[in-house]
């Protein structure tokens, strides 16, 4: 009997600890499928961030290093410079990458550090219980913006791909979503391209994945996906913002 669907080898056989309806699981799977398809698990090292995905070292079958909050790109730099033939990726949330780790993110891109960043943007701090993230939308209600994010007071959300696309060292900056089958397939293509670019030594690659947080958004799984479509995609348009091998949007 032909097997048509199975767990990727690059994921360990343990249950995820993510909340029901959260899309981290899908994104993990896309990364793992990519590692499988490229046949790189044996020489891939992942860097876990601080945030909901802090324990992803328990899920990925490749070697893993857990980084201080925001420092994943610096840790990845050390790993990559130490053994350049290894494939090194970070998996970071929005607080990790775009607040506390902005300097590390921007400068890894500036150096054209030959690493891959999987950036999960769900517009909120998940692990600490739903506080404002650098990517929280205008007027979005969170635990620390109980009256809605007032942009005149708390600033505007950061569009990370657009920002990093301006840098010479960035080889690929693409925003994707996992809210429907077509978008999941596109996300997979983007992640695979990002890893491929690293194999081809083309520089810094980042894939921003718009993601949901049903628990902290106070919505169920279906409503969350709809909220993402209605609110996040208009503010964070999907697309390729920089691609040294393709066309810039």
């Amino acid at each position: 009997m032909a097997v048509v669907f199975q767990k990727p080898q690059a994921l360990l056989d343990v249950p995820f600890t993510y909340c029901p309806g959260c899309t981290h699981g899908i994104i993990h799977r896309l990364v793992a499928e990519t590692i499988d398809e490229l046949g790189i698990e044996g020489h891939t090292v992942g860097v876990a961030p601080v945030g909901c995905s802090v324990m992803n070292y328990n899920f990925f079958a490749c070697d893993m290093v857990q980084a201080p909050h925001g420092r994943a790109p610096a840790v990845a730099t050390g790993l990559k410079r130490a053994i350049p033939e290894n494939i090194v990726f970070t998996y970071q949330g929005d607080g990790d990458l775009a607040a506390i780790g902005t300097a590390e993110t921007v400068h890894a891109a500036v150096r054209g550090e030959n690493i891959t960043v999987v950036f999960v943007n769900n517009a909120i701090y998940g692990m600490t219980g739903g506080q404002m993230a650098p990517t929280s939308l205008p007027n979005q209600v969170t635990q620390t913006t109980p009256y809605g994010r007032d942009t005149s007071y708390s600033g505007h959300p950061i569009r990370v791909c657009e920002m990093l696309a301006t840098l010479e060292g960035t080889a690929l900056a693409q925003r994707v979503s996992v809210d429907n089958v077509k978008n999941v397939q596109n996300a997979k293509k983007a992640i695979k391209k990002a890893f491929t670019y690293q194999i081809e030594k083309r520089g810094f690659s980042i894939v921003e994945v718009l993601s949901t947080c049903p628990t902290n958004w106070g919505l169920d799984a279906q409503e969350s996906l709809q909220w993402l479509r209605d609110n996040m995609i208009p503010y964070y348009p999907l697309g390729v913002y920089k691609d040294v091998g393709g066309t810039t949007k």
Binding site: V45, P68, R71, G78, A82
Partner: peptide, 9 residues
């Protein structure tokens, strides 16, 4: 943190 990475390797 780069030291952390290189040492981890």
């Amino acid at each position: 943190n780069m030291v952390l990475g290189a040492s981890a390797a």
